[in-house]
Amino acid sequence: MAGYPTLRRPRAQGQLISLVPMIDVMLILLVFFMVTSTYLDLDMIPAVRQRDATSGASDATAGTVLIRLASDGVPVVRGVAQTDGALAAFLAAELAETPLTQVLILPSGAATTQSLISVMDTATRAGATRLRVIRLEARP
């Protein structure tokens, strides 16, 4: 009487491809990306938008506030130099009365970019939604 056939599990084959070169390449890539990566946290403020062209006509019912930015970076409203807090309070009062007040900023060419951004920040935090930067252009 024949016995049951014996089933043998096939022996697992050894490693066909060495993993060492792959690990080497991965480590080199890892070091490369660790060294070359930059971790800049940057934001943006829109300067020109397509829809700005269509919103050029001013609303007759809304007022306009002109902020002149002096060359030393001090904002001047109606001839009076303003601190950041005073400017924020002034704009908040204006915008509470007329929410669609247009805020125009006329910066001096010698003012720094930081001073312009700070004034734009102040106006935005005060609630201004219609904010424009204007500049005088020399014509021959």
Partner: peptide, 29 residues
Amino acid sequence: KDAELRHVLPLVGMAEAIGIADVVLVVTP
């Protein structure tokens, strides 16, 4: 941040004039 606006704003105007509709200023939060 210390660049004078006479170096910056004319470039925004120039970009707008040649038809670039999306110009943004890079800032640090």
